[in-house]
């Protein structure tokens, strides 16, 4: 990875567990010996509003915020929210998108979101049904985030080994929920 930082933006809505994901990735990065800085927001946004969090991994990281046009990976937990993260992308950014919608009054149709996504994203775009798989297999949509981040690690989209993500999950997730989170991780392992 050299001196370059690896920049991740996670986007979604309050209540989707963005901060937990951020903690897991940050922990995994330090397990691999990287420096890391992150930024998150609390408060009003927790009540179902749009949120994004930033994670930066490298030899030495200064700012916690990903500059515009500098994300290496954008993880989107909610379909429409992907659009809001586009300013952080460039022609090489990978988008890993949860095919999952939390619609609200006044939103635009999925078709329109599709249209905009294909118009505006020229780089790699992977859309997977993370929340749907987790709902079917584990009974919980919210595990989609763990699935997504694990998937990213297994497919080599992160500069972090899946093994480190696994260790980080065990450190960050409270004991009583650990088992089901580890199952989401395993599901991602066998995703095609």
């Amino acid at each position: 990875m050299g001196n370059k930082t690896f920049n991740i933006v996670i986007t979604g809505t309050g209540g989707q567990g963005l901060i937990t994901l951020l903690q897991i990735v940050a922990e995994a990065a330090t397990i691999e010996g990287f420096d890391v800085k992150t930024a998150e927001l609390h408060g009003l946004s927790q009540r179902g509003g749009s949120v994004n969090t930033h994670i930066r991994i490298g030899e030495k990281v200064y700012s916690p915020l990903v500059p515009l046009g500098s994300a290496d990976l954008i993880l989107s937990l909610e379909y429409l929210e992907t659009l809001r993260a586009i300013p952080y992308s460039n022609s090489k950014t990978t988008f890993l998108i949860n095919c999952y919608s939390l619609p609200f009054v006044g939103t635009i149709s999925e078709k329109e979101i599709d249209r905009r996504l294909s118009e505006l994203i020229k780089s790699d775009k992977i859309i997977i049904a993370a929340s749907e798989v987790c709902r079917k297999e584990l009974g919980k949509d919210v595990l989609g985030g763990i699935y997504l981040i694990s998937y990213a690690a297994f497919k080599g989209l992160l500069p972090i080994k899946p093994e480190s993500i696994k260790k980080a999950i065990a450190r960050i997730i409270p004991k009583k929920y650990l088992d089901i989170n580890q199952k989401a991780y395993k599901l991602a392992k066998y995703a095609n």
Binding site: S50, L83, P87, G106
Partner: peptide, 21 residues
């Protein structure tokens, strides 16, 4: 040099207001 490569990104995205649980 702006690192922002994608032009015209200031598209109108409907606002998702925080809401009562």
């Amino acid at each position: 040099k702006k690192s922002l490569e994608i032009g015209n990104w200031k598209l109108e995205i409907p606002k998702r207001y925080p809401r009562l649980c």
